[in-house]
């Protein structure tokens, strides 16, 4: 049953009033809710003091960006498992579309049109800008806000935009295929795993102690990745994590969109569902 516009407006107004009254009551100190004090807590203070501090050699991450150093160093294992969840979802969508493949000839017969020439030209100009912005977000992840996931999600919009504006046929004709993206994604994941074990391998080679997910030297484990490379601050493992996560996330999203944008006719033909 379609809701009338009067009912909708009444719903909106009542929700706004209820929320405002609740917020005012809490702000005035009612309802037993205690608003946390606005001053800096000791944990945040610790992160801010150790994120970039060359004098505390065994505690620092050597990265001026506190968020990225928390995400990939202080709680690196947590981020690893979050990434695993994301890639399990992508594996699930690939498994759902099994048996359906992208065939350039079939696509050419089906729908190779795309949108108007103005949109095509503008998209041609913007795709380069999108990739530049995403690379900047990902590779400066340890210096400015941003990081691997942010950069990857940004970069994934570029092939998606080309797919929507120029058609899937154009994309697959120019060599963007599901297998290539899977390879890129796997390479990114392997890179993340290798970076996680890098300190352990170095420690084994020099026969000292080392930890998984170790970035800078710690007490009892004096190995670590260099904080400065070619006179630039690279923050040890952080830049590698960001770089590999960037490729893995961008390729993962692109696989999903490649599979989703296959025309319905071809999907039905490949999966053996007859037309109604």
């Amino acid at each position: 049953m379609e809701m009338s516009s009067g009912t909708k407006i009444a719903g909106v107004v009542s929700m706004v009033i209820v929320t405002s009254v609740l917020a005012l009551a809490i702000a005035a100190g009612g309802l037993g809710y205690v608003i946390p004090p606005p001053h800096l807590r000791s944990l945040a203070d610790w992160y801010l003091k150790t994120a970039l501090n060359p004098y505390l050699k065994y505690f620092t991450v050597n990265s001026p960006e506190a968020v990225t150093s928390i995400v990939w160093d202080y709680r690196g294992l947590d981020t690893l498992f979050e990434t695993t969840v994301f890639f399990l979802a992508i594996i699930g969508s690939i498994a759902l579309m099994r048996g359906i493949h992208i065939d350039v000839k079939e696509l050419k017969e089906c729908c190779p049109t795309g949108m108007s020439p103005i949109v095509k030209t503008v998209t041609r100009v913007t795709v380069g800008m999108i990739l530049a912005v995403s690379a900047s977000i990902a590779l400066h992840g340890h210096l400015t806000p941003g990081g691997g996931f942010q950069g990857g999600a940004t970069a994934a919009v570029a092939p998606l935009l080309v797919m929507v504006v120029f058609s899937l046929y154009f994309v697959s004709k120019h060599g963007l295929s599901e297998e290539k993206m899977l390879t890129l994604r796997t390479a990114g994941l392997l890179g993340i795993a290798f970076t996680a074990f890098a300190a352990l391998i170095i420690g084994y080679a020099f026969s000292t102690h080392a930890y998984v997910f170790q970035n800078q030297p710690k007490a009892e484990a004096p190995v670590g990745l260099p904080a400065y490379m070619f006179n630039a601050l690279t923050s040890g493992t952080l830049i590698f994590f960001n770089l590999f996560e960037f490729f893995a996330v961008a390729a993962g999203f692109t696989i999903v969109f490649l599979l989703l944008s296959i025309p319905e006719v071809i999907v039905k033909k490949h999966s053996g569902v007859s037309e109604e």
Binding site: I118, V119, V122, T126, M129
Partner: peptide
């Protein structure tokens, strides 16, 4: 510059 390029193109796509 981005808005100068993207705004009119988006409006055009939408109008079309």
């Amino acid at each position: 510059v981005l808005i100068l390029i993207l705004g009119p193109a988006g409006s055009h796509a939408l109008a079309r």
